[in-house]
Simulated assay, not measured.
Amino acid sequence: MERPGAPLKETDLARTGTTVGDVPVLVIGARSAERRGLVILLPPLGGTKDQFEPELRRLAAAGLIGVAIDPRRHGERADRPAGALFDEVMAHFRQVMWPLLGGTVLDAMAVIDWVAARFEVPGPVLAGGVSMGGDAALALAGIDPRVSRVAAIAATADWTRPGMTRIGRPQETIDQGAATPSGQWLRDQLEPISHPDRYRRHLEIRCDVGGTDSHVPPEAMGRFARLLADGSPRPSIQVIEHPGLDHAEICSSPQILDESLDWLVAGSDSGSD
């Protein structure tokens, strides 16, 4: 997608908060017909759609429809405080995280259906996310052929996260426990590294990973990139490692988020073909 011309003014933008089914959705887009495509942003564990409002406004000013959702059990549909949910996930990772992650992927696909029809979006569908949201954006591209470009930060293609440790405690490996049958089914159906053939199409992926991130180990994205290189057609995939950054640092970096969104909107001049 070409870089848009002059950005739209704030007065040209419209903000819509609604629900699609039971999914809380925030949409910010141009009031006019100058719509170039749709971008969906997916938050990390403990995050909400509203944290991305500045980014949605920036994307909308570039002529895109910006969309964010509350992941399952987050934001407007939270069943406990974010800190308590985080502790629950860390104590029973596969039992709790895989349904959260897989359900959010399916929710995102349904929201794209609604937004594309409601706002008559003619252009491409782009997806971005941070940590769990980046995992979901990657998985979304595997099941929704409308998605042509993905920008993920601190994300993984391997939901088992081999060697995962606690955030800020790299010496403490997490006992991930066992998955529920429904969670296992979601992982079997949606995990990117289990379905590389789904990504062998016209698709561009960028993933920024932390060089010292042992919570979401970066090796899985390198492994995924090598899998995608073995076959045809081959998508374009960049795995950009940031030396010295751990999980918390890469997830909270405004510069990396800005660069990721710039790439998402403007396209990439490099990467593997």
Rank of each mutant, 00 (worst) to 15 (best):
I153C: 01
M164C: 07
H195Y: 14
R166L: 15
D230S: 08
I112Y: 04
M221N: 14
F224R: 08
T180H: 14
R187Q: 13
A110M: 02
V216C: 02
G123R: 08
V209T: 14
E120A: 15
A157S: 15
E204P: 00
G129V: 01
Q176V: 09
E219L: 03
I143M: 11
M109N: 13
R201C: 01
D188Q: 03
H195K: 04
P181N: 12
P192E: 10
R234L: 11
E204D: 06
L228E: 11
L186F: 03
L228D: 15
W114Q: 01
P217W: 04
M109E: 15
S232K: 11
Q176Y: 06
R201T: 12
G128C: 13
Q176K: 15
H195C: 04
G177V: 12
G134S: 08
E172N: 02
S236F: 06
L138G: 13
G231E: 05
A141L: 03
P235H: 11
E172I: 08
P122H: 09
L186S: 10
D208C: 09
L140R: 02
L227N: 02
P122K: 10
V147C: 03
V121R: 00
A220W: 07
D175M: 04
G222E: 02
Q176I: 01
D144M: 04
E172Q: 13
M164V: 05
L190W: 05
G177S: 03
P170D: 00
R146N: 08
P162I: 07
S148Y: 06
G134N: 08
A220V: 10
T156F: 08
D213A: 02
G129E: 01
A108H: 09
Y199T: 09
A155W: 05
A229R: 15
G133L: 00
S236M: 10
G211Y: 07
G123I: 11
P196G: 07
S148H: 08
D213E: 05
I153R: 12
D197A: 06
P124V: 14
A110Y: 02
P170A: 01
A151L: 12
R234D: 02
A108D: 05
A152M: 12
L126I: 06
G142P: 10
A127H: 12
G231M: 07
A229W: 14
E219T: 00
C207R: 09
G211S: 00
D135I: 15
W159N: 07
A225K: 15
H195F: 10
S131A: 13
G177N: 10
P235T: 12
L126F: 07
Y199N: 02
A151V: 06
S194Q: 11
Q189N: 13
D135M: 15
A139Q: 09
V150C: 06
Q171T: 08
W114A: 00
S182K: 04
A229F: 13
V130N: 06
P122N: 06
E172T: 08
Q176N: 09
G168W: 15
V111T: 14
G128M: 12
D144N: 14
R201W: 03
A116L: 04
A141M: 05
V125H: 09
Q189E: 14
G210N: 03
